[in-house]
Amino acid sequence: MSKFHISATVNGEAVEYLCDPKQTLLDVLRDELNLTGSKEGCSSGDCGACSVTLDGRLVCSCLVLGVEMQGRSVETIESMASGEKLHPLQQKFLEAAALQCGFCTPGFLVAAKSLLEKNPNPTESETRYWLAGNLCRCTGYDKIIRAVLETAADMRGSK
Protein backbone atom coordinates (compact mmCIF):
# COMPACT_ATOMS: atom_id res chain seq x y z
CA MET A 1 0.00 0.00 0.00
CA SER A 2 1.69 3.22 -1.08
CA LYS A 3 1.69 6.17 1.26
CA PHE A 4 0.68 9.75 0.68
CA HIS A 5 2.90 12.72 1.34
CA ILE A 6 1.02 15.43 3.21
CA SER A 7 2.02 18.96 4.19
CA ALA A 8 -0.07 20.53 6.92
CA THR A 9 0.14 22.88 9.89
CA VAL A 10 -0.01 21.35 13.35
CA ASN A 11 -0.10 23.65 16.38
CA GLY A 12 1.20 26.50 14.27
CA GLU A 13 4.16 24.61 12.83
CA ALA A 14 4.54 23.32 9.30
CA VAL A 15 4.78 19.53 9.27
CA GLU A 16 5.15 16.90 6.60
CA TYR A 17 4.23 13.27 7.00
CA LEU A 18 3.60 10.10 5.10
CA CYS A 19 0.38 8.26 5.80
CA ASP A 20 -1.54 5.39 4.33
CA PRO A 21 -5.07 6.04 3.16
CA LYS A 22 -6.64 4.20 6.10
CA GLN A 23 -4.94 6.27 8.79
CA THR A 24 -7.08 8.83 10.53
CA LEU A 25 -5.89 12.25 11.59
CA LEU A 26 -5.85 10.82 15.13
CA ASP A 27 -3.56 7.98 14.01
CA VAL A 28 -1.29 10.50 12.31
CA LEU A 29 -1.13 12.77 15.35
CA ARG A 30 -0.44 9.90 17.73
CA ASP A 31 1.66 7.50 15.69
CA GLU A 32 3.42 9.66 13.08
CA LEU A 33 3.81 12.98 14.92
CA ASN A 34 4.05 11.60 18.47
CA LEU A 35 1.35 13.95 19.76
CA THR A 36 -0.35 11.50 22.11
CA GLY A 37 -2.38 14.07 24.04
CA SER A 38 -5.39 13.40 21.81
CA LYS A 39 -6.87 10.10 22.97
CA GLU A 40 -8.65 7.27 21.21
CA GLY A 41 -11.73 6.12 23.10
CA CYS A 42 -13.96 4.77 20.35
CA SER A 43 -12.74 5.54 16.78
CA SER A 44 -16.31 6.28 15.82
CA GLY A 45 -16.82 9.90 16.82
CA ASP A 46 -18.91 9.03 19.87
CA CYS A 47 -16.61 9.87 22.78
CA GLY A 48 -14.81 13.11 21.87
CA ALA A 49 -11.53 12.10 23.53
CA CYS A 50 -9.74 12.88 20.27
CA SER A 51 -11.24 16.38 19.88
CA VAL A 52 -9.07 18.87 17.96
CA THR A 53 -9.80 21.99 15.97
CA LEU A 54 -9.36 21.76 12.22
CA ASP A 55 -9.09 25.16 10.57
CA GLY A 56 -10.70 26.53 13.71
CA ARG A 57 -13.59 24.09 13.79
CA LEU A 58 -14.08 21.48 16.52
CA VAL A 59 -13.89 17.93 15.12
CA CYS A 60 -13.24 14.38 16.24
CA SER A 61 -9.82 13.63 14.78
CA CYS A 62 -10.81 9.97 14.46
CA LEU A 63 -13.37 11.01 11.82
CA VAL A 64 -10.88 12.87 9.65
CA LEU A 65 -8.45 11.02 7.40
CA GLY A 66 -4.77 11.85 7.46
CA VAL A 67 -4.81 12.32 3.69
CA GLU A 68 -7.48 15.03 3.99
CA MET A 69 -5.06 17.29 5.81
CA GLN A 70 -3.14 18.69 2.85
CA GLY A 71 -2.76 22.45 3.38
CA ARG A 72 -4.95 22.47 6.47
CA SER A 73 -4.27 23.50 10.03
CA VAL A 74 -4.96 21.56 13.22
CA GLU A 75 -4.71 22.61 16.87
CA THR A 76 -4.41 19.97 19.58
CA ILE A 77 -4.29 19.90 23.37
CA GLU A 78 -0.50 20.19 23.14
CA SER A 79 -0.82 23.80 21.99
CA MET A 80 -3.35 24.94 24.56
CA ALA A 81 -0.92 26.26 27.16
CA SER A 82 1.37 29.08 26.09
CA GLY A 83 4.83 28.53 27.41
CA GLU A 84 4.61 28.03 31.15
CA LYS A 85 1.18 29.59 31.32
CA LEU A 86 -1.78 27.25 31.32
CA HIS A 87 -4.93 28.28 29.50
CA PRO A 88 -7.53 29.53 32.02
CA LEU A 89 -9.60 26.40 31.32
CA GLN A 90 -6.66 24.14 32.15
CA GLN A 91 -6.02 26.06 35.35
CA LYS A 92 -9.68 25.95 36.35
CA PHE A 93 -9.96 22.23 35.63
CA LEU A 94 -7.09 21.69 38.09
CA GLU A 95 -8.51 23.94 40.78
CA ALA A 96 -12.04 22.61 40.44
CA ALA A 97 -10.98 18.94 40.37
CA ALA A 98 -12.78 18.65 37.05
CA LEU A 99 -10.84 15.52 36.15
CA GLN A 100 -10.43 12.14 37.75
CA CYS A 101 -8.70 9.64 35.49
CA GLY A 102 -7.86 12.46 33.07
CA PHE A 103 -8.28 10.44 29.88
CA CYS A 104 -11.20 12.48 28.53
CA THR A 105 -9.69 15.73 29.79
CA PRO A 106 -7.76 16.82 26.66
CA GLY A 107 -10.91 16.38 24.57
CA PHE A 108 -13.06 18.30 27.05
CA LEU A 109 -10.55 21.14 27.22
CA VAL A 110 -10.29 21.46 23.44
CA ALA A 111 -14.08 21.33 23.09
CA ALA A 112 -14.65 23.81 25.93
CA LYS A 113 -12.10 26.26 24.50
CA SER A 114 -13.89 26.06 21.20
CA LEU A 115 -17.20 26.79 22.95
CA LEU A 116 -15.88 29.85 24.76
CA GLU A 117 -14.37 31.22 21.56
CA LYS A 118 -17.78 31.05 19.93
CA ASN A 119 -19.85 31.96 22.96
CA PRO A 120 -18.10 33.72 25.86
CA ASN A 121 -21.24 33.61 27.99
CA PRO A 122 -22.86 30.20 27.61
CA THR A 123 -25.71 29.06 29.84
CA GLU A 124 -25.39 25.79 31.76
CA SER A 125 -27.70 24.17 29.25
CA GLU A 126 -25.72 25.44 26.25
CA THR A 127 -22.53 24.18 27.86
CA ARG A 128 -24.05 20.77 28.53
CA TYR A 129 -25.23 20.42 24.94
CA TRP A 130 -21.96 21.69 23.45
CA LEU A 131 -20.05 19.11 25.51
CA ALA A 132 -22.58 16.30 24.94
CA GLY A 133 -20.21 14.80 22.39
CA ASN A 134 -17.50 14.36 24.99
CA LEU A 135 -17.95 11.35 27.24
CA CYS A 136 -16.66 11.29 30.80
CA ARG A 137 -17.28 8.22 32.93
CA CYS A 138 -15.62 9.40 36.14
CA THR A 139 -16.98 12.78 37.15
CA GLY A 140 -20.68 12.78 36.36
CA TYR A 141 -19.87 16.03 34.45
CA ASP A 142 -20.82 18.27 37.41
CA LYS A 143 -17.35 19.66 38.12
CA ILE A 144 -16.51 19.90 34.41
CA ILE A 145 -19.58 22.02 33.66
CA ARG A 146 -18.91 24.23 36.67
CA ALA A 147 -15.28 24.68 35.65
CA VAL A 148 -16.26 25.77 32.14
CA LEU A 149 -18.91 28.20 33.40
CA GLU A 150 -16.55 29.67 35.99
CA THR A 151 -13.76 30.04 33.45
CA ALA A 152 -16.15 31.81 31.09
CA ALA A 153 -17.09 34.22 33.87
CA ASP A 154 -13.41 34.80 34.78
CA MET A 155 -12.46 35.43 31.16
CA ARG A 156 -15.33 37.87 30.66
CA GLY A 157 -14.33 39.65 33.86
CA SER A 158 -10.72 40.01 32.82
CA LYS A 159 -11.50 41.55 29.46
Binding site: S38, E78, F93, L94, L99
Partner: peptide, 13 residues
Amino acid sequence: GVDKVTGRANYGA
Protein backbone atom coordinates in the same frame (compact mmCIF):
# COMPACT_ATOMS: atom_id res chain seq x y z
CA GLY B 1 -2.78 17.47 37.36
CA VAL B 2 -0.65 19.53 34.98
CA ASP B 3 0.36 16.42 33.03
CA LYS B 4 -3.29 15.54 32.62
CA VAL B 5 -4.54 18.93 31.40
CA THR B 6 -1.70 19.35 28.91
CA GLY B 7 -1.89 15.95 27.24
CA ARG B 8 1.51 15.01 28.61
CA ALA B 9 0.35 12.12 30.81
CA ASN B 10 1.08 8.71 29.35
CA TYR B 11 -1.81 6.26 29.26
CA GLY B 12 -1.74 2.64 28.13
CA ALA B 13 -1.75 3.31 24.41
